[in-house]
Amino acid sequence: MMKQNNLLLLALKQIFELSSVPCNTYRFVSAELGMVRSVKGTLEVSEQIFMLGQPYRLTEGRILLMHAGYIRVRANLIEFTLSAKQLIVTSPGTILQVLEVSNDCELEMLAFTNSLMEGWQKETFLQMFLQGRLYVQLDLAEKEEKRIQQFFDMLWDVVHDEPFPREIVRSLIAALFHQIYAYRMREMSEDKQQRTRQEEVFNRFLLLVNKYAIRERNIIFYAERLYLTPRYLSTLIRQTSGRTVMDWVNEAVVQEAKLLLRHSDKLVYQIADELNFPNASFFCKYFRRLTGKTPHEYRLGE
């Protein structure tokens, strides 16, 4: 069952090229938009490119409507469990690892390129999505789930029109984001009082780590960005997550290294340079200390 979900992790261009039949009963894939009505729509290309636990960077964002079962994932360093009657929105550029999928998992998915919405009058929530700054996981009431399902049904129907009705599709996507924003605001008003200052600072810290860890590995940098002293930031992060600031920074760096080792043909010294290590030897020791493998062993899947 695990291999059925790889479409969540790939660029539309990749899927389009690998699919001998881009469109069938369960999927629609074009250069700019992809829809899956069931995990059955991912079967054809799954064995060629998916690996459990392997990080992938999403070229396009994803909107998932979970119907049954669960998926355990790590998105931008944080582990989540996606379960039935949830809506998940994750931006382009998200680094995602699928850790576990239940045998009864069932879902629908929408993906589209930023270029599809180019020139569109974007509202704030859609803009955040396109700029790589959005991860939303919403529990849906029965009425809300039905409403989102109606959007998916209408999009599925419209994308099959000939010629492709680009403006109608763009309008429906924008309307879908307006609806998701309304549900998000409802949820935030309900749990706003429960969120502590520590949690808010921790979330802002992780955003910074995901953005800057390749270049900045000094606690002072993150403390200054958050207007805190290094000592207070260290204490806060440890209390909130049970891990140190450098644990999170190192994990982000290793995650990027894994992506480059598995998804590029760059030499180890080139990767070391891209990740701002002084030399390849230093990078190899660093990677082995944190993963238990050399970069070469990891690249070969040993």
Rank of each mutant, 00 (worst) to 15 (best):
F112N: 01
L233A: 06
V98D: 00
A75F: 09
L12T: 08
H296N: 07
P92C: 08
E44I: 14
M2W: 09
F151G: 00
E274T: 08
T291N: 00
T196H: 04
L275I: 02
L64Y: 12
H67V: 05
I95W: 05
S171I: 14
I180C: 01
L7A: 10
K192H: 14
Q270E: 15
E251V: 06
M128D: 14
A223K: 04
A68V: 03
E44H: 15
N218L: 04
V158P: 02
H160Q: 14
L12M: 10
I180F: 02
Q54P: 00
A252F: 03
E144K: 02
V89D: 01
L99G: 03
V201W: 06
Q127I: 09
R184A: 06
V254A: 02
Q121Y: 09
V245I: 15
L52H: 06
Q48C: 06
V45P: 05
R299H: 07
E187H: 11
R57G: 02
S102M: 11
Y70R: 13
M109F: 11
N6W: 12
Q150H: 13
F221P: 01
G61L: 03
T229E: 11
A252W: 00
R195T: 13
S46A: 12
M109P: 02
S83E: 09
V159C: 08
D273M: 08
M109G: 02
Q4D: 11
R289D: 07
R225Q: 15
D139Y: 09
N279D: 15
R57A: 10
R57I: 15
Q149Y: 05
H160S: 06
S241C: 05
T94S: 10
D139Q: 11
R215S: 06
R215T: 05
Q137W: 04
L130P: 00
L77R: 11
F202A: 00
D161Q: 13
L206T: 01
L228N: 07
I220C: 04
K40N: 12
S241E: 01
V253A: 01
Y135G: 04
P295I: 08
L228C: 06
R288H: 09
E190R: 15
V73H: 00
E44K: 15
R299C: 04
E32T: 14
Y56V: 08
I271P: 01
S38L: 07
K293H: 07
R231V: 15
A11E: 11
E47S: 12
M246H: 14
P165R: 13
L176H: 10
L300R: 13
D273C: 03
T240I: 14
E44G: 07
N103V: 12
R27Q: 09
S20M: 09
F112Y: 11
Y286L: 06
M128C: 09
T240H: 13
Y212C: 04
R186V: 10
R217Q: 07
F202S: 01
G301W: 03
V73A: 05
M2A: 08
I168R: 15
F282I: 13
I220S: 11
G119S: 07
E145M: 10
P278N: 04
A252G: 02
Y222K: 03
A111E: 05
R133G: 01
I63C: 04
P55T: 03
P278V: 10
G132A: 01
T59E: 15
K122E: 06
D247Q: 08
T81S: 08
E145D: 05
M154D: 11
S91K: 01
L208R: 04
